[in-house]
Amino acid sequence: MVISLVAGALWAMLPAYVPNNVAVLAGGGRPIDAGRTVGGRRLLGDGKTWRGTAAGTLAGVALALVLNAVRPSVATAFGVSLPSFPLRAAVGLALGAMLGDIGASLLKRRIGRERGAAVPGLDQLDFVGGALLLTLLLAPSWTLSTFTPARLVVVLVATPLLHVVTNAGAYLLGLKTEPW
């Protein structure tokens, strides 16, 4: 039962976990804020680009479609229950993850944090909040039935751990300039 719970929770979040990683790899180009400042500080900074946001969102949606295709085989092979992703949920998870990260960047600039500065908690869960909120707006019944309270607990505990591990790996590979 615990394995099925954890597998279902992480599976449901995969389309939200991938977009920010893809954005790091595919980013660059024109910043979303176009260099605008408020109070002498950038709105978002150079790290939030249109290309990265589009690539991350498309990757998350594409992953959800792949997961839909392999779900029956994976669920049977491991004896677990895994959700499928309606397109609206896939878009909500992927785009919501990107918007959550962008919102956190905006907040960090407003409180005087520079690009790359750590804000524990916010850095690990910003995309989760964005993903769940947008998915709730786009696919409410799917979100409420998929993200049960138990699965939400798994997501809120596992995500910071996964975030630390993946960001440290990206830093060690030279893909990020800071390990958080």
Rank of each mutant, 00 (worst) to 15 (best):
G8F: 07
S84E: 12
F78W: 13
V80G: 09
A158T: 12
P19C: 01
F85S: 05
G47M: 06
G169H: 06
A12G: 10
W11H: 14
R41F: 08
A55M: 14
M98F: 08
T37R: 11
G47E: 14
G60H: 05
R71N: 03
L138F: 14
R41I: 11
L5A: 11
S84G: 15
A62N: 07
I102S: 13
T57Y: 02
T166C: 00
G129Y: 02
P83I: 01
G52Q: 12
E178H: 14
I111L: 09
G112F: 04
L14A: 15
A64L: 14
L43M: 13
S4R: 00
V164L: 14
T49Q: 10
L122N: 06
L67I: 13
L107H: 06
P72H: 15
A90N: 07
A34I: 05
P31E: 13
A90L: 08
P15K: 11
A75M: 06
F85L: 05
W142S: 01
R41K: 12
G169F: 15
P15S: 05
N20M: 06
G130V: 02
S4P: 07
N20W: 07
G29H: 10
L137C: 07
V2S: 07
L134T: 02
A34E: 08
L156Q: 00
W180H: 13
D126M: 12
A9L: 03
T135N: 08
A23P: 14
T37H: 08
I3Y: 06
G60I: 12
G8A: 06
D123L: 01
G39L: 04
R115A: 15
W142A: 03
A64E: 04
L25K: 08
G169Y: 11
A7D: 00
E114G: 15
G60Y: 01
P179S: 03
A170Y: 12
P149G: 05
D126H: 13
R151Y: 01
A59Y: 06
A94K: 02
L138G: 05
I32K: 08
P86F: 09
S141W: 00
A26V: 08
I111T: 04
L25A: 13
T53E: 02
G29F: 04
G92R: 07
S105N: 06
A104R: 04
A23T: 03
Q124Y: 03
A16S: 13
A26G: 10
F78E: 04
P179G: 11
V80H: 07
A16R: 07
P72M: 02
L67E: 15
L65I: 14
I111G: 03
L10A: 04
G27I: 07
L136K: 00
A118H: 09
A34L: 08
L87F: 11
A97S: 14
A75H: 02
D101Y: 02
A117N: 09
F127L: 04
P149M: 07
F85T: 03
I102V: 15
A117T: 12
L10F: 04
A69W: 08
L43A: 06
L14E: 09
V61R: 07
G174Q: 14
L44T: 10
A150M: 05
A26E: 11
D33T: 05
L122G: 05
G103W: 06
D126Q: 14
T135K: 01
V22R: 02
P86G: 00
M13N: 10
S73N: 08
S141P: 02
I3S: 09
G45C: 05
L137D: 08
I111M: 10
G121H: 08
V70Y: 00
